[in-house]
């Protein structure tokens, strides 16, 4: 499950990047360095998401124990 989720996530990243039209460069992309920032934000958010999924599972375990 986690692997599928992760691969979908990374795929969505690729699609979002590929969707960029080449013409009309905005100031954000003119030096090409904004991609570094975007990559770092993506990594942080993916780690937060994995953390939340694990937390969710731990709570599920507690619920099962209490039943």
């Amino acid at each position: 499950m986690k692997k599928i989720t992760l691969s979908i996530l990374f795929l969505s990243t690729v699609f979002a990047l590929a969707a960029q039209p080449e013409s009309q460069e905005s100031i954000m992309r003119s030096s090409g360095k904004i991609y570094v920032v975007v990559g770092i934000i993506a990594i942080i958010f993916i780690l937060i998401a994995i953390y939340l999924f694990r937390l969710d599972r731990k709570i599920s375990d507690l619920e099962n124990k209490n039943k």
């Binding site: 989720t5 979908i8 996530l9 969505s12 990243t13 979002a16 990047l17 969707a19 960029q20 954000m28 992309r29 904004i34 920032v37 975007v38 934000i41 993506a42 958010f45 993916i46 998401a49 939340l52 999924f53 969710d56």
Partner: peptide, 18 residues
């Protein structure tokens, strides 16, 4: 819905900047 949330927010974080 959790996977959807993560996908949508990832898209927003990435594409919102680009």
């Amino acid at each position: 819905y959790k996977v959807l949330a993560v996908l949508l927010v990832s898209y927003v974080l990435i594409y919102g900047l680009l």
